[in-house]
Design a binder for these strands. Structure first.
Lengths: 243, 243
DNA sequence: TGCAGAAATTGGTTGGACCATTGAACCACT
DNA sequence: AGTGGTTCAATGGTCCAACCAATTTCTGCA
């Protein structure tokens, strides 16, 4: 016997509010940046208290779906649809070196898989876009002698997009943001990223040749150099702390 | 010049409430399952309105850190610390077949990396624990002729834990939960998981031999069989729909 | 016409009230 | 002893009305 008796839901006002609101957004075809109705109007239309509306919107705000600006209004920050699934992750102690290495291990896994999928799925247009970003990056690397982190990131994003799975870009972007928020000047390694530079071209070559395993291997090599750089930087940091 | 002047915060009451509460949890050494103070008490102690406390708790509830039970109280659901980083992910359209395959691609990436890291880092105790789960799983597979999804999951969790990086378990668990919520009986494939069975042992062998690349390869093979099963199931589903 | 100040709009906060659920204590009956 | 019902206090859920603070819009004067 399955013995499955889910508890009945007697109250779920705020969830109901969010469902209604998601339906509204769908019907009005609202996109990111657009303004949605006032809390007071929502409360009146949905026949619930403004407090309930606020709790519901607080949920969406915590999920990064919406942005509230006092005196102005509430604005969509991302595309919302009635059939969204939420997966909030919390990293405990993410702002020390060990935490950084942990996020990097996740990124290594996703980077390799995205490169492999990209090698399988990338069409001509995606391939051209990736190569364009790669050229820009290499040019920036030559002229500015190494400082090409922004262009580097654009190249990787192009790969994620061409992987055909938006989750890669979502997850890695979230980690990238955390990375930058807490490690803006990563440990003072001056030639940070130098070692990873050549692998961008090799990754692209494998993708262009539709060689998923090669792309995966090259991506792993790239991430290995990044980790080495960070470890070197951490060692430097410890030395300079010790003086 | 970096030109970094963060805007001053004139109002951030609920964030302040959460920070204070995180500090409280830390000081009292509260763990998951334990009850934290009443909303009314928090409001009184922190000198804010109960509504503000509620908005703050709503945030934590949305992040899965806390569970509220009407008439009973508010309970911790996970370890919280003052230096947490939040990374909420929303998957649009996650409950169709394409969405399932997308989450599976992420899982494949993480599964392979976790197995590789595990092969590098697992000590004797972790190795023994994994083998124990493996034995249980194989026994269940023999006696119940295939239906060993629960034991299967326990084996994988043991691998994630031994990877030395809690993020693997966090992320994959979140996906596993989504998976089960929407695909409880995955497409009616009766011998679902049969094909993946032998790879559990091969993965363990590679881990025990401290062979990261081998473990990665075997994990990829395992996920490939799972994806095949699902595709087969989807094809069946289409056929039966058409009748 | 341009712009400073008033007025309206909107999210943020407060305090108080009542409802619905929970859980413990207590009681009656078997 | 144990089963079931009742009472009651505690707690989260909802509502209301008012006010605060930031923003936007309007207005009237120079």
């Amino acid at each position: 016997m399955t013995d499955f008796l889910p508890p009945i839901q007697t109250t779920a006002r705020d969830d109901a509010v969010l469902k209604a609101l998601a339906g509204f957004v769908r019907q009005e075809a609202l996109g990111p940046g657009e303004k949605l109705p006032t809390e007071r109007i929502l409360a009146e239309r949905l026949k619930v208290s403004r407090n309930t509306v606020r709790e519901a919107l607080t949920r969406w705000e915590g999920l990064g779906l919406v942005e509230r600006r006092q005196g102005s209004g509430t604005y969509l920050k991302a595309a919302v649809s009635p059939d969204m699934l939420h997966m909030p992750l919390t990293l405990a102690g993410g702002n020390d070196f060990a935490g950084l290495m942990r996020t990097l291990e996740i990124r290594r896994a996703l980077e390799a898989e995205a490169a492999a999928l990209c090698a399988i799925r990338a069409g001509k247009a995606e391939l051209a876009e990736i190569e364009r970003k790669l050229d820009i990056m290499e040019e920036a690397f030559r002229t500015r002698a190494g400082m090409s982190s922004e262009e580097d990131w654009e190249f990787h994003q192009a790969v994620y997009r061409a992987s055909g799975n938006p989750l890669f870009e979502q997850i890695i972007s979230a980690m990238h943001e955390l990375f930058h928020r807490f490690w803006e000047h990563p440990l003072g390694v001056r030639d940070f990223g130098h070692a990873s530079f050549p692998y961008h071209r090799t990754i692209f070559d494998c993708i262009a040749a539709h060689d998923p395993e090669g792309a995966r291997a090259e991506a792993l090599k790239l991430m290995a150099t990044v980790e080495d750089d960070l470890k070197r930087g951490a060692a430097n940091l410890k030395l300079s702390d010790r003086r």
